[in-house]
């Protein structure tokens, strides 16, 4: 077990270096002089440009700049915004709770709707219930979150006036975005739960349990569900990325402040240092989440091995 963790940690290091290299190189890949972008609307002379370059460290050799970048990162310093000159870290931390709340709520929707739909479909395998549940799931998988978001607003905010259309704060503002974001994951989960349930239901011990006279419901709940949920948990980890994607569009549709919205406005604002910081932050957190999921998973399921 310890060896596994150690291996995973060692595996993470080159990826971390890669991420930092990639984000670091961003300022060198963009068209135009970063110094001029920093200056914003202030006209610059040669001298002032040179001054800003010095200030930003752009006059030093690239490897020194990189070392400096890493050193600053190690201290948790993500630099300052090229646009409003505020701290990038603060902006991210400010946006984070909104996205976190949304993602968690969506996760709840996904798990609830997805497992129920999947189990029902599997138990009633081959019936019209199964067929229609899977058709619904297919529609759900095919529905972009920004489209489902807009449709939800159209019906539940504008037509029925049940929920406010946009903004953050309070449960009533969380329902629609969480649904919009959660439903596509729910659809994916439903398909998955169904197929792994079917798999398990077909296996010997279930047949044995059945033949022993256990009620079908007991069989499903006690045996099949437990085993079917293992792959589901894995997928849940992978869904983090999917949810991050959805969070970007969902936050834009529902005008919720959050990391996604911050990313889009920063890109449109050519606020490269902000984009740099967000990308780094998101990638590293994703990496860590996966690490934790892997380790936790290995601890639970002995069949998992590291290859």
């Amino acid at each position: 077990m310890h060896r596994f963790i150690a291996q995973r940690l060692i595996h993470v290091i080159p990826v971390l270096i890669g991420i930092s290299l990639l984000t670091f190189s961003m300022l060198h890949l963009i068209p135009g002089d970063p110094a001029l972008i920093y200056a914003g609307d202030t006209p610059l002379g040669e001298e002032l440009t040179a001054q800003i370059r010095r200030l930003l460290g752009l006059d030093r050799p690239v490897w020194v700049q990189y070392a400096d970048y890493i050193w600053r990162l190690a201290r948790g310093d993500l630099g300052i915004s090229m646009r409003h000159r505020g701290s990038v870290r603060d902006s991210i931390l400010q946006a984070l709770p909104g996205t976190f709340q949304l993602t968690m709520a969506a996760m709840v929707v996904a798990v609830l709707v997805g497992t129920v739909l999947g189990i029902v479909a599997a138990v009633m395998h081959g019936s019209w219930v199964d067929t229609s549940a899977m058709a619904v799931a297919m529609v759900g998988v095919s529905m972009p979150t920004f489209y489902s978001g807009l449709l939800l607003i159209l019906f539940f905010s504008f037509r029925l006036a049940w929920f406010p259309a946009t903004g953050q704060g309070g449960m009533e503002r969380l329902v629609l975005p969480a649904l919009a974001l959660g439903l596509s994951s729910a659809a994916i989960l439903a398909r998955l739960v169904r197929s792994s349930m079917l798999e398990v239901l077909r296996q010997d011990y279930i047949t044995t349990a059945r033949s022993k006279g256990l009620a079908p419901r007991v069989v499903v709940l006690r045996h099949a569900l437990k085993n079917a949920l293992i792959p589901t948990v894995t997928i849940l980890g992978l869904q983090f990325g999917h949810l991050m994607t959805g969070a970007v569009t969902t936050e834009m549709v529902f005008s919720r402040p959050g990391l996604g919205r911050l990313t889009v406005t920063s890109i449109l604002n050519r606020d490269y240092t902000m984009v740099q910081g967000i990308v780094l932050f998101a990638a590293v957190s994703f990496l860590l989440v996966n690490l934790v999921v892997d380790v936790a998973y290995a601890a639970v399921d002995p069949r998992v091995r590291y290859d």
Binding site: L36, I37, G40, D41, P43, L268, N269, R270, D271
Partner: peptide, 14 residues
């Protein structure tokens, strides 16, 4: 060319 406000200012400057 759709830009957010600050980027627009830079474009104007350029």
């Amino acid at each position: 060319l759709a830009l957010e406000v600050a980027a627009q200012r830079t474009a104007i400057l350029g």
